[in-house]
């Protein structure tokens, strides 16, 4: 076992332990919310998945920039792996958010809300990014064009933020209400859930990058065998 494998296992174990603790805290330990009731318990993992998806897309941007700068395939693999995990967590955030919204606002989705809108744009941009990856042949050309698209896609996030000037606040602002409606136990539960999902993200990211590197090595070996046969 290499050092990286051990680190991956530690990450996943930490994530599993924290997830179970988080589940216990979310369902049994944290008090029921005054106004929203039990529906609010989805909040802990909703915020955690949203945070991880933003982190993952940020890493994709970083990987894309580093790839264009250094031409090192390692960064391309990092960007792609992170985007794929990001889309999964973003989907989870959207679904849990919609369930929560149905309970509290009575509808699944409010189009006027800025945070919901931005998350939707991010989700669509990175789904397009994955479609781009799956429709091109592996190699330097794919790495370059997907890095360019990753950067443009991320660039469009602040731009569409500016374009969407309808600024009506339906979405509960977590940070501002920390002192008020969010009790200490709730904050502790939230922090546990966020750490659990961050470790999960790091664990999956390491496994995924390893897998992609192995895939590439396999391709090279296949090429060599093909050359020998030919």
């Amino acid at each position: 076992m290499t050092k990286k494998n051990i680190l991956t296992i530690i990450m996943l174990l930490a994530s599993a332990a924290l997830t179970f603790t988080g589940l216990y805290m979310a369902f049994l330990w944290a008090p029921t919310h005054d106004t929203m009731g039990d529906v609010q318990r989805i909040f802990y993992f909703h915020v955690a998945s949203a945070w991880v998806s933003y982190l993952a897309f940020g890493i994709t941007l970083l990987g894309s920039l580093l790839y264009l700068k250094t031409n090192n395939m390692k960064y391309d693999i990092l960007a792609y792996s992170s985007a794929e995990i990001g889309v999964v967590f973003c989907t989870a955030a959207i679904i849990t958010g919609a369930l929560w919204a149905k309970g509290v606002w009575g509808v699944f989705w409010i189009w006027d809300d800025m945070k919901l809108f931005m998350t939707m744009v991010l989700w669509l941009v990175f789904i397009a990014y994955l479609a781009l990856r799956s429709n091109s042949d592996p190699g330097k050309a794919r790495a370059r064009i997907s890095a360019v698209f990753g950067i443009i896609g991320f660039l469009c996030i602040p731009l569409s933020f500016a374009a969407n000037r309808i600024w009506t606040q339906f979405h509960p602002t977590v940070i501002a209400s920390e002192g008020g409606s969010l009790q200490t136990t709730m904050v502790q539960t939230l922090v546990t859930a966020v750490f659990a999902f961050t470790f999960l993200y790091l664990g999956i990211l390491m496994m995924k990058t390893d897998l992609e590197i192995t895939k590439e090595e396999l391709e090279e070996i296949k090429q060599e065998i093909g050359d020998l046969d030919g």
Binding site: V121, A131, I145, F149, G153, C156
Partner: peptide, 19 residues
Amino acid sequence: NLSQSQVMLPVLLIPILLF
């Protein structure tokens, strides 16, 4: 540069241009 470029153009264009 992509396979199915006819489909991929709107797929890539819509999320970044529309919003």
